[in-house]
Write a protein that binds this DNA or RNA. Structure first.
Lengths: 157, 157
DNA sequence: ATCTATGCAAATAATTTGCACAATG
DNA sequence: CATTGTGCAAATTATTTGCATAGAT
């Protein structure tokens, strides 16, 4: 995502708050800016750290209070990486149907979209009497590193 | 899953413990029996309740210590339902590639398997240089109830 | 003035762990 | 008797909330 897009997403987030009758504050702006200045996934704690680099007055509570708002806006989506921590993915506005491939060796995450996957999802859902609204698809496996080079430089543990 | 199958799965779980050099205890047996006597999904707390109906001496700590073992055995899989609680799904031995359709109105969960989904998953993974090991596919949407009857008897809230 | 937002610290909820005792091989 | 397993209660971790204060309209 390029700089212009990020600016637009931040603007959309602020617009969402405005439409909801909520105020724009330095803290919320710092949190929004931090969240959408990266395409990496982050945890609440990680977001706090990033937001504080912009505005040190941001508190943990405000981060935890702002995250549900951004989820509600549709600009941010939750991401479960298997450990007990809630992660967030800021890339769903640009790629609304994307999925995750996660390497169990090195934790590398690849995002991908696939039209056939979407069609199949819709088809199966309807067949079972469901009207699909959203989906989570996470594939875990091994990336090429271990096979190609005998070892994975970023290997866990 | 019928009674015979359940017995076999419990036996497999005990065998797994044995192969690992771990002991069979009344508490572990009660937990195993409770976990595989239902095809419903459960939380650690729910499993504790069920296990205690079989053997009241089972403690919360033992449940939490046994769950990772059952996960490791492959007989039980984690299931994320979006609230912060870890749920477990005992149906993966019978249906190793099944997925979940979840109704956002009434929390109804439908499990389904689909060969095309598996093929597509493998195809996409390989194309991206991944060797897939497992996947999580969860589709959220609306089941027929609200549409057909104007209301859903089991509606949340 | 009134409403909204904030930081702090305390509260909560789910899970993990240390430890003394019990059960097993 | 040496090892493994257990319950209990305390510790840990992530998240939520009450409250007094600060800021915006």
């Amino acid at each position: 995502m390029n700089f212009e897009n990020r600016k637009q997403v931040c603007a959309a987030a602020r617009k969402f708050l405005e439409n909801k009758g909520l105020r724009q504050t330095p803290q919320r702006n710092a949190i929004i800016l931090a969240a959408f200045s990266t395409s990496d996934h982050f945890s609440a704690e990680g977001l706090l750290r990033m937001a504080r680099e912009i505005d040190f007055s941001v508190s943990r509570a405000t981060v935890y209070r702002t995250l549900p708002l951004l989820m509600e806006s549709g600009l941010l989506r939750g991401l479960d990486l298997g450990n007990g921590v809630q992660y967030y993915d800021p890339n769903f506005i640009e790629h609304p149907t994307h999925n995750h491939l996660i390497c169990v060796d090195c934790d590398k995450i690849i995002e991908f979209e696939d039209i056939n996957m979407e069609l199949l999802k819709n088809c199966i859902s309807r067949r079972l009497g469901f009207f699909p609204e959203s989906k989570v698809l996470r594939i875990e496996g091994h990336c090429e590193e271990l096979q190609l080079h005998g070892s994975c430089p970023k290997r866990r543990g």
